[in-house]
Design a protein around this nucleic acid. Structure first.
Lengths: 230, 230
DNA sequence: AGGGCTAGTTTTGCATACAAAATACGTTTG
DNA sequence: CAAACGTATTTTGTATGCAAAACTAGCCCT
């Protein structure tokens, strides 16, 4: 253990919350999975107190659901939940597009352009994981360019709930081409300061993504969509 | 104690979180107030564990700020925070307006109209508290008419952070008249299913509100706006 | 007299202990 | 044989205990 030199930078419950959030978003903990306290405590080597505090935080974020006297489970989204969530994300991302078009700096635009080229490379290689990573970074950058921490925080929070479904490993050729094309136009609109245009584009972009996810759900590729009777 | 008949409907941490949230929003706990664990435990008659869990939830909601090893304080908003928050709320409320215009039922519209009349009465009597209550209910109803629980939840959460500032007891005559007028037009647009128009109207409505709050902040009427150095 | 150090106190953070609820499972009974 | 009851075990919820960090305040020293 290196706990002499490296001081624990943040409190334990925060650390636990981060690790749990990560595991949920990465899909290591599938939706519907019961969070067993004793088990998680052993894995993370912490006592139940900070673990429970972390779980409560994730519940407030909407990533886990608390069942009174029955613990917590990773949140499961119904088809309707997904539709609703995309509707909200579209609104938030549309807003961040509007603001970013007005507020983005030359440096940020340059960085997005660079990532855009990398993304084209990933697309050419059919390298989906890299593509998705770059995609996420570009959207993060657009959001950051909006210069609104409250927006960023809200957006990340709502987004996290969707990431749980990790619809990453699926994207057919035509949709992929279209997505790449839309990204090209995003850069143009950012450069041209076209707030309204970027807003509309981002919203349309998300609607396509939404339809893709719903299709996958219906095909049962993500997870069974029935919710508990509760 | 009536704990024989009335079973405690929800877990203690949830109850504590609700009561604390209430106290914060109502302004009983001012922004910047330190949340002393021992003290709050005594007041609420609970042990530190559920209290701490509740505080962590409120922190995830953005209502309190956690200071490592130094407890928690009720969140303080800087002027920039307020601007950012209003920007997000405007986006969310604009969206709920669009959706509500498309999805509202005749019954809901009737109820809003009724509240609208009550509001006019409150305005005529210069009864600000009643007015604000009705105002909140109308906006809640519009939001509910959007039929999107995720949106409602997100909106409530972001809104709560602003309510902390309880800028209620201030509204000059001209602004009040204008607000009432805008409300009249909201009902018209809902009835006319004018999604785009309602969106714009709600956003403008909030911009006025934002400017009012900022004015009050600058005048030092809400609370001193400096944040801790941390 | 003022600044800084140190001992004492308070307060927070984490771990553990205890109580109650829920689950599992074997047994019993119709 | 199936359904249901009752007990054992697990798991959650809450309270308390203990250690470390932060505040307080008094003292010493320059």
């Amino acid at each position: 253990m290196n706990n002499i030199i490296s001081i624990p930078r943040q409190s334990l419950h925060q650390e636990v919350a981060n690790r749990l959030r990560q595991r949920i978003i990465e899909g290591e903990l599938d939706p519907g999975t019961k969070l067993n306290e004793r088990e998680l405590c052993e894995v993370m080597n912490v006592s139940r107190t900070p673990l429970r505090e972390a779980v409560k935080m994730l519940a407030a974020e909407g990533l886990v659901e608390l069942l009174p006297n029955r613990g917590a489970v990773v949140a499961r989204l119904t088809e309707q939940d997904v539709l609703d969530t995309f509707e909200v994300i579209a609104g938030l991302e549309g807003l961040s597009g509007e603001l970013a078009a007005a507020r983005i700096t030359a440096e940020e635009l340059t960085e997005i352009r660079a990532l855009q080229y990398e993304m084209r490379a990933a697309h050419a290689r059919r390298d989906l994981p890299t593509y998705y990573g770059l995609n996420a970074r570009i959207h993060e950058l657009i959001n950051a360019a909006a210069r609104n921490p409250v927006l960023t925080q809200t957006w990340r929070n709502v987004n996290a709930r969707l990431q749980v479904m990790r619809f990453r490993s699926n994207l057919d050729g035509a949709k992929w081409d279209q997505a790449l094309d839309e990204h090209e136009r995003m850069v143009e609109m950012l450069a041209g300061r076209d707030a309204a245009g970027l807003r509309k584009l981002l919203i349309d972009h998300l609607m396509v993504k939404r339809d893709t996810v719903i299709e996958l759900m219906r095909a049962g590729k993500l997870y069974q969509k029935q919710k508990e009777n509760a």
